[in-house]
């Protein structure tokens, strides 16, 4: 009897675990419902970007980050090494070789992709990230505890952290100039871009434009809109003349990053049924074994008997 019970316990635990893992990853109720049909985005046409880095300057100015004079940004020396956004720059431009025309290198802007199903929003322990109906993903400084789980979760390695600050370190990432847009302006990088290599508009429009450009200039662009389907789609889209992996963009599947983890989470905590069931089950086992134990205790049974049970 008692052995059975212990095994039962193990079985239940294993079964519960299996049930969790067997959950369908598509059952998650995501943020899709709250997204607006007219949600905005940016289309980054790398063929039009000349690498002037003015967006870097404008971004810093718009976000009150320390910056040098605009003229210093024409320095192309920085392209020698691959750069990523950090706590002082929310967007950076990198240069890549262009085999089709060595005189016109490819420049790729990097910033938050504003995923349709953002991993950071799903991951954040205190819900400091918000996916707005217009597509923007923003971060709330008043909530953040600095655990950096968003950085672990982000498929594009975008959120950055102030490692050199002991007090009030910030998680920083592009917010598509949320505050600027409130006053009717376009994001700072879009505004300053001389070539309008960054197009700001409705995501649906941008997709149309991107498809049209690829269709019209098959010798300039490869047939791939990066961000159309990656991790369930992103607000920022890219078109380029070179495979995106070679432009150091991660090759990603179409499944949203938080899909599996959220379904596991919701499976474990489906209206608190599984935990409560487990609780009740354990209580039952406890009660049953205790009743059995009262008699057995009198017989002063010891380990030997248990071993017999174990071996049988």
């Amino acid at each position: 009897m008692k052995n059975l019970n212990r095994r039962n316990f193990l079985k239940t635990a294993a079964a519960a675990g299996l049930a969790i893992s067997a959950l369908d990853s598509k059952t998650v109720k995501g943020a899709d419902k709250t997204l607006s049909e007219d949600r905005i985005g940016m289309l980054i046409d790398t063929a039009n970007c000349v690498g002037c880095r003015h967006c870097e300057w404008a971004c810093r100015v718009a976000h009150n980050l320390p910056t040098n004079d605009l003229d210093t940004y024409s320095n192309t020396e920085v392209f020698k090494e691959y750069r990523r956004p950090d706590s002082h720059s929310l967007t950076v431009i990198n240069e890549f070789e262009n085999e089709k025309n060595p005189l016109l290198p490819i420049h790729v802007k990097t910033q938050c992709m504003h995923c349709e199903r953002p991993a950071c929003v799903s991951a954040c322990i205190v819900g400091a990230f918000t996916k707005h109906p217009d597509g923007t993903v923003t971060w709330d400084t008043d909530k953040c505890i600095g655990c950096r789980y968003c950085m672990v979760a982000c498929q594009f390695q975008i959120p950055t952290f102030d490692y050199d600050k002991a007090i009030d370190p910030q998680i920083r990432k592009c917010d598509l100039c949320f505050d600027r847009r409130k006053s009717g302006k376009v994001p700072a990088c879009v505004d300053i871009c001389p070539n309008e290599a960054i197009i700001y508009g409705k995501r649906s429009d941008l997709l149309k434009i991107a498809k049209d450009r690829i269709k019209r200039k098959p010798d300039v662009y490869i047939k791939h809109i990066y961000g159309e389907y990656e991790v369930g789609g992103t607000s920022v889209l890219y078109i380029a003349g070179k495979n995106f992996t070679e432009l150091k963009m991660p090759p990603l599947g179409t499944n949203p990053a938080p899909g599996i983890s959220e379904s596991i989470q919701h499976g474990v905590f489906a209206y608190f049924v599984p935990p409560v069931t487990l609780y009740a089950l354990l209580g039952l086992i406890m009660w049953i074994t205790k009743r059995g134990k009262v008699d057995e205790l009198k017989e002063n049974n010891d380990i030997q008997e248990d071993e017999k049970g174990e071996n049988s």
């Binding site: 954040c124 953040c144 655990c147 789980y149």
Partner: peptide, 15 residues
């Protein structure tokens, strides 16, 4: 801010 998760909940987060 270690106490934040006590009052700021995000049910989707494994953390």
């Amino acid at each position: 801010y270690i106490w934040h998760p006590l009052i700021m909940w995000n049910g989707n987060s494994a953390l």
